[in-house]
């Protein structure tokens, strides 16, 4: 045992561990929530992540076909090649169409709110251990993104930036129970905060707790951000009320909300890097 502890390998292990723990402490104290070592690795290998994201996109758009007989193989191959070309064009068209829809909504939002500043980002990876749909974006600190910046898709709220490196950032969606969004129901004006539980999150739902048993909020109501707290601007759409449930922990009720965004299908989003009234932002 003594020989093992005195070995060079153990000494190097101890030095690396000390450095990693120091990096973790630094990450917590600088409020970027990313260790400098992770930041360096992400800077070097972010291209690999982008490449794999593009490859996954291609794979999801393609299908595998089997040749029926040897005599038809040549003909099938020729047709497959034509089909692949057509499908490639179609994929391009579908991508352009979905991007156009996103940019149209964005343009509308930009017209309504001149103060908003955005960074357009693509999703490059997702955390396999995280059940709540966290993902990594291809832009970071150098693009003006900070921790707690809201992430949107058109007029819809997606989540917020949880950690940031120079070239990429990690986003927690509103399906994460750690995310709380000050919100109000548009028709009744009842306000509170939208959050979720692991159980609801698995079903892709959120909740607006603390409503009276006699609440006028009902299914079909629209829930938007209220802007209280300065993390999110007012009037971003969170989702629609699907029902009212009694809270088991107290005498209140809560509204079950279906978010307007399909998080698993997102490819591109916008990060709001500045809006009037943002917490911690310098007045511009």
């Amino acid at each position: 045992m003594r020989r093992f502890v005195k070995s060079i390998g153990f000494k190097i292990f101890a030095v690396i561990m000390a450095a990693l723990v120091f990096g973790a402490v630094l990450a917590a104290t600088t409020h970027k929530y990313t260790s400098p070592f992770t930041s360096a690795v992400s800077f070097i290998f972010s291209r690999v992540q982008r490449l794999s994201a593009r490859l996954a996109e291609r794979l999801s758009d393609s299908e595998i076909y089997f040749k029926s007989s040897a005599s038809m193989a040549e003909r099938v191959s020729e047709l497959e090649s034509q089909l692949a070309d057509a499908r490639g064009q179609l994929v391009g068209y579908e991508d352009a169409k979905s991007k156009l829809a996103l940019y149209e909504e964005f343009l509308e939002l930009k017209k309504e709110h001149n103060d908003y500043k955005f960074a357009s980002c693509s999703i490059i990876s997702r955390d396999a251990a995280d059940l709540f749909g966290s993902f990594v974006l291809n832009k970071g600190e150098v693009h003006g993104i900070k921790v707690n910046d809201p992430v949107i898709y058109g007029k819809y709220l997606v989540g917020l930036v949880a950690s940031v490196t120079k070239t990429q950032c990690t986003v927690r969606t509103i399906l994460n129970p750690d995310v709380n969004v000050s919100a109000y129901e548009v028709r009744t004006g009842e306000s509170g905060f939208v959050t979720t539980t692991p159980e609801l999150s698995r079903k892709g739902l959120c909740r607006l707790p603390g409503l009276d048993r006699t609440t006028a909020v009902s299914a079909g109501g629209l829930v938007c951000t209220s802007g209280v707290g300065g993390i999110y601007p007012r009037d971003l759409i969170i989702g629609q009320v699907t029902g009212i449930e009694n809270d088991n922990e107290n005498i209140s009720t809560y509204a079950v909300i279906a978010p307007s965004v399909r998080f698993s299908e997102l490819k591109d989003v916008f990060v709001l890097t500045y809006f009037y009234g943002q917490e911690g932002a310098a007045g511009e």
Binding site: L20, A24, S35, F37, F45, Q49, V136, Q168
Partner: peptide, 14 residues
């Protein structure tokens, strides 16, 4: 590498 995919501040590396 794993940490670049997550929100944690270095747990995976450790």
């Amino acid at each position: 590498l794993w940490d670049t995919y997550t929100t944690g501040f270095g747990f995976n590396a450790i």
